[in-house]
Computed example of a mutant assay.
Amino acid sequence: MGNSVSAFSGVTPSDKVNPPPSCPMHKKTPEEAAPPAPAAKPSECPVQHGNDVNPYNMMPPANQQPAPDQPFNLPTNRQVSSIPRAMPDGSTEFWVYPSQQMFWNAMLRKGWRWKDEDIKPKDMDDIIKIHNANNEQAWQEVLKWEALHAKECGHPRLKSFGGKATDYSPRARFRNLLGYELPFDRHDWIVDRCGKDVRYIIDYYDGGELDNKYQFALLDVRPAFDSVENVWDRMKVTYMRYRYDLLGSKEEKLSQ
């Protein structure tokens, strides 16, 4: 989507077998309920809408209620991601994606008006699958960078994130000056590298046709130029890519 909405919440590893329909876990009746435990705050898309926001994704509490003029009902079940979440107490949970109903409400808050489009329930199902696939793809790209620090930290976790759809990165602006299109979205992710915060910039470009895995975006993922270590990582990767392309082209010529 041109102005995508990203949303996660938290769930412990044991909850992955049975994804919660609401944040952060199934609500039980008083007869079923175990002794109360501290509940993680729910999360939605990374846009600030007031003072009662979650500091980890700058979102208000999850809203699973249908909008007053909503043309059809939407599912409220949520998919658990593969992305580990860094918790303040050091424990690990997994971020949880928004339901279709949460996504609908989030888009309304951002100014979208469904009456201007011929939208159907199937469209919302596709939107959620695209959104989730984009985030899973982004995390895999982050892990490629984090592999440079595998000895230092073998279990990086996503701490927080925010959307900056119209705040184009310097790299995206420079590419645009060269004639390339601007990204349709941008996220900044803060990764907890075993106690060290590392900021990643993710630019999302239109990749054309949607494939059978609901992926269509081309992702440009890299550490931000805000630390000497990040600058060094990007220099190393640039060199490795250049060396690989150079050796690959020579080997191809020799094999001909």
Score class of each variant (00 low, 15 high):
G2T: 11
N3D: 14
S4R: 03
S6L: 03
A7Q: 08
S14D: 15
D15R: 08
P21F: 06
C23Q: 13
P30L: 10
A34I: 04
P35N: 05
P38F: 06
K41N: 06
V47R: 04
M59P: 00
P61N: 13
P66I: 07
P68D: 07
L74E: 00
T76H: 05
S82W: 02
P84I: 10
W95K: 02
S99E: 04
F103D: 01
M107H: 07
L108F: 06
L108G: 03
R109D: 08
K110T: 13
R113Y: 06
R113M: 11
W114C: 00
I119F: 02
K120L: 12
D126T: 15
I127G: 00
A138M: 15
Q140W: 04
V142L: 10
L143A: 07
L143Q: 14
E146M: 14
H149I: 01
G163M: 13
G163K: 03
T166A: 13
Y168W: 15
P170I: 09
P170L: 09
F174G: 04
G179I: 12
D185R: 00
R186C: 04
G195K: 12
D197W: 08
D197N: 14
R199G: 03
I202P: 00
Y205E: 02
Y205N: 02
G207W: 07
L210S: 01
D211G: 12
N212Y: 11
V221D: 01
E229N: 07
N230Q: 12
R234I: 09
R234T: 06
R234C: 06
V237Q: 05
T238A: 15
R243Q: 14
L246Y: 14
